[in-house]
């Protein structure tokens, strides 16, 4: 494992910790899209179905369990916690699941490398992860006074994707037979989706102003 991959995973983990701290610490999920969180849970479930059949390393197994556990907890808090669920901006979080899930499913069926249930679902998870942030970005545009934790959460998630691209570039040059067109294309698309957000994030940071995305 190279330093970019490890740093990417740590950013991913940190983003989830920041989100959980926000939700449980201030008992509020204001500005957080439940749709994005549920899509991520679906991404992890469909991708990690091989958790007990394809052992890679203790690190991988532990991280998979942590991602499954924490994303389940986030969805649980937002849907069922007596206090936290009251802070969810349901009326604003209107992105349609089907708009993202259906194309991902069709593309997975059309392009899967091997037609086994595990492989098709794994391919589906790659497509879905690329676009799962969209409900969150739309909700951010609609949210007045985005708090720091929410802005940092999305920033850390975007950093994770950017670092994975560096990891792929590194692996491309250091490993033979590392040709991952599907994963690369989806990863680049996913990172491009964050570009607009990054621009306004850095602008607000530079000017020492509160983050706001123009509608």
């Amino acid at each position: 494992m190279n330093v970019f991959r490890l740093a990417g995973d740590m950013m991913h983990l940190l983003s989830i910790v920041v989100l959980l701290l926000k939700i449980t610490g201030i008992k509020s999920c204001r500005g957080i899209s439940l749709k994005t969180q549920e899509l991520y849970l679906l991404v992890f479930i469909t991708r990690y179905l091989d958790i007990f059949t394809n052992f890679v390393s203790l690190y991988n197994t532990v991280m998979k369990l942590v991602f499954l556990g924490t994303s389940s907890a986030i969805v649980y808090y937002m849907r069922y916690d007596r206090i936290i669920k009251l802070t969810y901006d349901k009326e604003q979080d209107t992105f349609k699941y089907l708009l993202l899930v259906a194309p991902s499913a069709v593309l997975a069926l059309a392009t899967s490398h091997v037609y086994t249930v595990l492989e098709v679902l794994w391919t589906f998870s790659i497509y879905l992860e690329a676009v799962a942030i969209m409900p969150q970005l739309v909700l951010l545009q609609r949210t007045q006074n985005i708090d720091n934790l929410t802005g940092n959460y999305v920033f850390l998630l975007g950093s994770y994707r950017g670092l994975y691209i560096l990891n792929w570039i590194y692996r491309f040059f250091t490993e033979k037979h590392y040709r991952q067109w599907l994963v690369w294309t989806c990863g680049v698309v996913q990172t491009i989706i964050y570009c607009d957000f990054f621009y306004y994030y850095f602008l607000s940071w530079q000017n020492n102003e509160k983050l706001a995305l123009p509608a």
Binding site: R5, N54, V56, N60, T123, R171, V183
Partner: peptide
């Protein structure tokens, strides 16, 4: 083949 090597990523 395609996909295989990425199975060691998260």
């Amino acid at each position: 083949g395609s996909g295989k090597a990425s199975k060691d990523e998260l």
